[in-house]
Design a protein around this nucleic acid. Structure first.
Lengths: 135, 135
DNA sequence: CGTCACATTTACGTGCACGTCAACTTTGCT
DNA sequence: AGCAAAGTTGACGTGCACGTAAATGTGACG
């Protein structure tokens, strides 16, 4: 069995696939969010890197900082950690989870509010459109 | 009934109430997110300002930029706008709403994933805690 | 009337998340 | 072998969202 299932991607392929710039990927590597392997001087991004990148990009959409995301990524990386380390990371993740649930609930509330405002504006626009005689 | 229900707040009262700095409030005013009235040189924040600040802070938690939030605030301010302006703002808001819904769905998915990871780590921690003789 | 706490303007500084440009190597193709 | 395309490492620049310090104003109180 060859390791060929670990199809690696070049930096450009990654950029095209995930709509990011080379700078961004190198930046993430510098921040230890990604660890592409090096073939000579070039970077080769593995399946693992791609999975992590997806999580990074999603985390960003939720307003997490890269440092916070780094903490989260550690959780998905528990295989090579020790129990103490796991515990710490586990606790961090618990807090994140709680925060995310709060955030979702707030988001749901905000969605409802905005929906109401929109339907209000909708009616308002309807009123303003037809020359207000009678109906 | 007097207009006393329009209790205004000083900058410090605002800071204490919403856990922000004076700098932040002045910054938001400069960006036209808030319009406190001026008593001489000092700022007085109205009920309206407080409502807007709540929205600003919540928007930030969702990862919106101040500029995006400014757009959203305009929607809650339709009373003094014209129809054309309303239309534009309305469309902006529609997009935001759609984005928020996507975001919530993603967030829900992320919550579920993280939950799974946590329960996995949980079992792992359990295994590592009690000395397992078998193999 | 002084002063002392709090507010204001002005302006430069900071951390984050990259963008951009220069100056190389490295690789792929003819 | 030669050359352009693509990748690499610095290093400096940028936009956002404020922080922070300096100088000044203002008003309530003993």
């Amino acid at each position: 069995m060859t390791t060929t299932d670990e199809k690696t991607m070049t930096i450009r392929e990654m950029c095209d696939a995930y709509d990011v710039t080379p700078r961004t990927l190198r930046f993430y590597e510098a921040k230890e969010l990604l660890q592409p392997i090096r073939q000579g001087t070039k970077r080769l991004f593995t399946k693992r890197d791609r999975a992590r990148l997806k999580l990074i990009l999603r985390g960003k959409r939720f307003g997490f900082s890269l440092e916070e995301i780094r903490q989260l990524l550690a959780l998905y990386d528990l295989g090579d950690s020790q129990a103490t380390q796991i515990r710490a990371t586990y606790d961090v993740a618990q807090k994140h989870l709680a925060g995310m649930i709060v955030q979702r609930d707030e988001l749901t509330a905000a969605i409802d509010e905005l929906r109401e405002q929109l339907s209000w504006a909708d009616r308002m626009l309807a009123d303003m459109s037809h020359p207000e005689a009678a109906e």
